[in-house]
Amino acid sequence: MMRRDARKSRAGATGRTWRPMLRTVPAHNQAAHASDTQPGQSRIVVPRRRPNWLVPPVSWIIRPRPTRDVQLDRLGTRVWRLCNGHRTVENIIDAFAGEHRLTFHEARIAVTGHISDLARCGALVLVMHEQVDSDESSTSPT
């Protein structure tokens, strides 16, 4: 076993850390608007950018919705509210884990899933406080 992996462990894990990802600070997109739908649940409306190709006469025919709606369940809403622009992802994971009696990595997988979904649809922006290798910041260890 040792010979085969002369330089690295097979997890590809050697030296890799997800600490930079944990230091990221998620903040609400100021253009997004959140409202409560039911107790503990919410809806976020995110304005869409008008695509460059959408000019007359194409825009006379294709009329995309000017906003994107995101419905959040109770857990998604909780993560959204924890993303206040001050807490790091690590702080949010710790808070979520404490509230739901989860281990750190259980909460990490749940929280980072929600955060990446919200960032992908433009509801959240991720503020990186240092130069981070893109592979490290985006890769989940599991």
Partner: peptide, 16 residues
Amino acid sequence: GRCAMADRYQYRLEFN
């Protein structure tokens, strides 16, 4: 086979 364990920041142990 192999298992890998991590603390909150990185992998710390693997056993094969």
